[in-house]
């Protein structure tokens, strides 16, 4: 597989040289491949958000480097600016960054900063609005008078409209109800399918990660503690719990059933797999 982002010995220290000095991330080496959907997991303060902000050049590392498509993003000022359009970052609670008079203008802010033609901007705004389920009837409304879920979608559309090759989302489902969560996750997978881009999803919801990710990276105390396929990571339940994380509910239920002697296959971490396994089991022992 082709690598799209690579970090080398990435280290970041906040407030260096004051009594508040704190090492946020330390010696992080990771490689992200084109087209992957990676979930980055870790509890509050594990350094995952700091890590993400390095990937599009918003934070400068104290040591080490970040390479996007093989290029050092901190080599020149232009490279650092260009990478913002290659790697789109949706911050936590992105609805607080909406500022334009209308929804349309707000989504167009990113593409406009890329100095695209009006026709191109229009096409991108409509496309990303469609992908996030923002109806065109909202285009002329003020973004500040929408509902919370709608604002979130508009904000995400604003980043998608730049058509970044890598889309990073920091806790995109935080504070949404289950329907809102499912909606946003679907927007993300739809975007990925439509554009073939790479997606990094920062989350502390194991269920979200289990539902859509191909690969999991677990941050703990500023370093990468685990990196692998969901089934590999979720099979290390004990370690996850020790880090203050948990496993998806389905994995926990499967584990509890196994402990009571129910014969279930390993690597169950989504509700669908669990249901299938239980149904198969029930059919197998049907005549009871």
């Amino acid at each position: 597989m082709e690598s799209i982002i690579r970090t080398e010995k990435l280290t970041h220290v906040y407030s260096r040289g004051t009594p508040f000095e704190k090492t946020a991330i330390h010696d992080v080496n990771v490689e992200i491949y084109r087209g992957e959907l990676v979930a980055v997991i870790g509890h509050t303060g594990s350094g995952k958000s700091t890590f993400m902000q390095h990937l599009n050049g918003l934070l400068r590392p104290d040591e080490g480097g970040v390479y996007v498509e093989g290029e050092d993003i901190f080599a020149t000022k232009e490279a650092t600016r260009d990478v913002r359009f290659k790697v789109g970052l949706v911050f936590q609670y992105p609805e607080y960054q909406l500022f334009e008079e209308t929804v349309y203008k707000d989504i167009a802010f990113g593409p406009r900063n890329m100095r695209l033609s009006e026709a191109e901007i229009d096409e991108r705004v409509r496309e990303s609005a469609r992908l996030t389920g923002v109806g065109e009837e909202l285009f002329e409304r003020s973004p500040l008078e929408l509902s919370g879920g709608q604002k979130r979608r508009v904000a995400i559309a604003g980043v998608m409209a730049m058509r970044p090759r890598v889309l990073i989302l920091d806790e995109p489902t935080a504070g949404l109800d289950p329907a809102g969560c499912a909606g946003v996750l679907k927007n993300i997978t739809d975007y990925r399918e439509a554009t073939g881009s790479t997606v990094l999803l920062v989350t502390h919801s194991m269920d979200d990660a289990a539902r859509i990710a191909d690969r999991l990276i677990v941050f703990h105390e500023g370093t990468i503690a685990m990196d692998g396929m969901p089934e590999e990571v979720f099979s290390r339940q004990r370690e996850l719990v020790d880090m203050g994380l948990d496993v998806p509910q389905s994995a926990a239920i499967a584990d509890a059933l196994r402990a009571r002697g129910v014969q279930l296959p390993s690597s169950i971490y989504t509700s669908r797999r669990l249901r299938e396994a239980v149904v198969a089991l029930a059919k197998g022992v049907a005549p009871c």
Binding site: R81, F85, V90, F99, G110, N113, V159
Partner: peptide, 30 residues
């Protein structure tokens, strides 16, 4: 907010006075 708008390509550092004042809008409104 500055980081979020920078991620959308906002530029707070360069440009002439008027451009810079206008660039502050995406920061001040939120």
């Amino acid at each position: 907010i500055m980081s979020a708008q920078r991620a959308r390509g906002a530029d707070f550092e360069t440009g002439r006075l008027m451009e810079r004042a206008k660039a502050l809008l995406p920061l001040l409104v939120p």
